[in-house]
């Protein structure tokens, strides 16, 4: 097992955001994490990359506790792709992608690092953007640059925080295809927080549905994305069609919610 998340709990102050979250992930596997706003999806990703430190529980990478790893060592193994850019000052796409080499290089970048950057730019088909400023790019282009940065990091685990949230449908598909191919070809394990249930259904091998900081359901798309689960977790009545052997969700209307939303009615 590549990545093992064991009974993780995390609180911001007195507000508990993650409760008893356990996940296992193998290499070349793509896991989607879905759930309503505030369910703890992003927090979970941040805990796995030690951007946040969980108060309880362990996260193991190849059997080693990430708490005991050096920051740089962890950075060589886990890549994180943020939702949007926080870049204020000018930076070229080339230099942005070169940042991915930070965990591998000293003060000066080498010829090898340059080659790695060029290789990744080519892989994502964004060579034409190389000398452009990152702030001049569209959301879709930026997202590809962030993916390129994470890939030059050469990670074994890739964490994506809503990679498609700002993209038009063409870019959504492009970005998801890129991620899918990378996961398969490079044997990377990917965890993706995602809002779009249909994208999750279409691309993920496995889906975890979170609610109120807990894992509500986990399994293949068909077993997780059921009308009952979605109604319980999101409070939305949906119709689930079958499209190419995958569930396709058509929302109908929001419904009044009753009972404890966080209550788990099934696991797997």
């Amino acid at each position: 097992m590549k990545l093992k998340v064991k009974d993780v709990e995390f609180s911001y102050g007195s507000v508990q955001v993650l409760k008893d979250v356990s996940i296992e992930l193998a290499a070349s596997e793509m896991l989607s994490v879905v759930g309503p706003n505030g369910a703890g999806k992003s927090t979970l990703l941040r805990c796995i990359d030690r951007i946040l430190k969980p108060q309880r529980g362990d996260i193991l990478l190849d059997g080693r506790d990430i708490k005991e790893m050096h920051l740089m060592e962890l950075a060589r193994k886990v890549g994180y792709i943020p939702q949007s850019s926080a870049q204020v000052f000018p930076a070229t796409v080339f230099d942005t992608v070169l940042m991915g080499r930070r965990p591998h290089l000293g003060w000066k970048s080498s010829e090898e690092d340059t080659e790695k950057v060029l290789e990744t730019l080519q892989l994502l088909d964004i060579e034409d953007l190389a000398m452009r400023d990152i702030n001049e790019l569209s959301g879709g282009q930026q997202q590809k640059v962030f993916i390129a940065r994470a890939l030059t990091q050469e990670p074994e685990v890739l964490l994506l925080d809503e990679p498609t949230s700002n993209l038009d449908i063409r870019h959504q598909l492009e970005v998801m295809d890129i991620i899918k191919n990378i996961v398969r070809e490079k044997g990377i394990a990917a965890i993706m927080a995602i809002h779009d249930l249909n994208l999750a259904s279409r691309y993920a091998g496995r889906i975890i549905m979170m609610n109120g900081g807990k894992i509500f359901a986990a399994g293949n798309p068909a077993s997780v994305l059921t009308p009952e689960n979605i109604k319980h977790v999101y409070g939305v009545e949906v119709k689930v069609n079958n499209h190419d052997e995958r569930p396709y969700i058509v929302p109908i209307r929001p419904v009044r919610q009753c009972g404890d939303r966080a209550e788990s009615i099934e696991r797997n």
Binding site: R46, D49, I51, M72, A75, D95, R149, A150
Partner: peptide, 14 residues
Amino acid sequence: NVMGAGDETAKSLG
């Protein structure tokens, strides 16, 4: 430079 990309990205880059 790396911090210019945001705290979270910088942390994930070690």
